[in-house]
Amino acid sequence: MRILFVGDVVGRSGRTAVIDTLPGLIRDWRLDLVVVNGENAAGGFGITESIYQELLDAGADAITLGNHSWDQREALVFIERAPRLIRPANFPQGTPGRGAALVETRTGKRALVINGIGRVFMQPFDDPFGVIDRELNACPLGQAADAVVVDFHGEATSEKQAIGYFCDGRASLVVGTHTHVPTSDHRILSGGTAYMTDAGMTGDYHSIIGMDREEPLGRFLRGYPAGRFEPADGAATLSGVAVETDDATGLAAKVAAVRIGPLLERAVPDFW
């Protein structure tokens, strides 16, 4: 299976990059599964139902979230009728929506997508290891699912790496999101799981993690807010990770970073 994971889409600039770029990648790379993190898609904070549909229309098979899941209050309601919108599985019991979904790919295969959120330097939600373990055991790779993608939304690289090794051999891909800076440690772990500490963002990198530079820079200098954070609106770079799995096992056979757009060095897989 050919999988593309797209890092945190930030604001209109990021959405434009997805809409303009993703359909061509699906066609040219013959992608089976596309997972997009959309938790910053609405003005940098949260997601709306119309944006959820916009990302699906561009070719996303599943959309994951994170700590900004509910910044657009409508998400608390429409997530119940959005089966491919996946919030962190370790949110408290009773939280609307789902933390994992088994989706049918455009080629008729089954992919389990799990979203988790970290506890280190983040709000301490339920234990992500126990919750992710439960989801993996309920839908085992190679039996109930042809591929398993885990989006772990966290601040600490150590916690993300721990999740990677915890899932090794049971997931096709474990990829971190949240920091908006792509890491260069994409690799296949010893058990066959592709791993990347952070996919980076799909947004304008001439910014401070996707936000127009003036207000966040001013807060560092002044020590207090003077206005709202607004997403930078320059041309965006689509960032993420590409994985090709072994059809017999669902484990990763190849992995590569993806960066398409200005400012960052271009990276595309050389195996497709």
Rank of each mutant, 00 (worst) to 15 (best):
V77K: 14
R134K: 09
D151V: 03
A82W: 09
S172R: 02
V113F: 06
L141H: 09
E74M: 11
G142Q: 06
I132A: 11
V181F: 08
Q143I: 14
T183D: 09
V131C: 06
L141K: 07
C139A: 15
R134W: 01
V103N: 06
N137P: 02
D151E: 13
G169D: 01
R187S: 12
Y165P: 03
S190Y: 04
D126S: 13
V120F: 13
D127A: 04
R119L: 14
R84G: 06
I208E: 02
N90Q: 13
I209D: 02
A199Y: 00
T202Q: 03
K109R: 14
G210P: 07
T183Y: 04
G191Y: 14
I79Y: 07
P83D: 05
G94V: 13
S190L: 12
L112R: 02
Q161G: 06
V148S: 00
T202D: 02
M196Y: 10
T197K: 00
R170K: 09
S158C: 00
L85F: 10
N90S: 13
G192I: 11
G169T: 01
G116M: 13
N90T: 13
A82E: 08
Y165C: 02
A171H: 01
P128W: 07
E159C: 06
G130Q: 15
G130N: 14
N90W: 12
H206R: 11
R106N: 05
G118D: 11
P182R: 04
D151S: 07
Q143N: 07
R110F: 06
V175R: 03
D127R: 11
G210W: 03
L173K: 05
S184P: 00
G164V: 00
N115P: 03
T197Y: 04
M201K: 05
S158Y: 00
S207Q: 10
A144S: 14
R84V: 12
E80N: 15
G210S: 01
A194M: 04
V77N: 14
T105H: 08
A194G: 15
G94C: 12
G203V: 05
L102K: 14
D198I: 05
P128Q: 12
T105M: 05
G94N: 11
A75N: 01
P92C: 14
S158K: 00
T177L: 08
Q123G: 00
A82C: 08
T105K: 07
P128V: 07
G200F: 03
T179N: 06
D198P: 08
M201L: 05
K109I: 03
L112K: 01
V150E: 05
Y205I: 01
K109L: 12
V113Q: 06
L112T: 02
A138P: 00
L85H: 02
R110T: 08
G191P: 15
T107L: 13
F121T: 03
G99W: 03
P182I: 01
T202N: 03
E155S: 00
F129R: 10
G99N: 09
A75I: 01
D151L: 07
V175A: 05
K160L: 05
V77A: 15
N137H: 13
G200P: 04
A89Y: 13
H180W: 04
T95L: 12
R81L: 13
A144M: 12
T105E: 09
P124C: 10
T107W: 08
Y195F: 15
Q161N: 11
P124W: 09
G130V: 10
D146C: 10
F78D: 10
D168H: 01
I208Q: 02
V77S: 15
T105R: 07
I209A: 04
A171F: 02
A147M: 15
A138H: 01
H186Y: 10
E159L: 02
C167T: 04
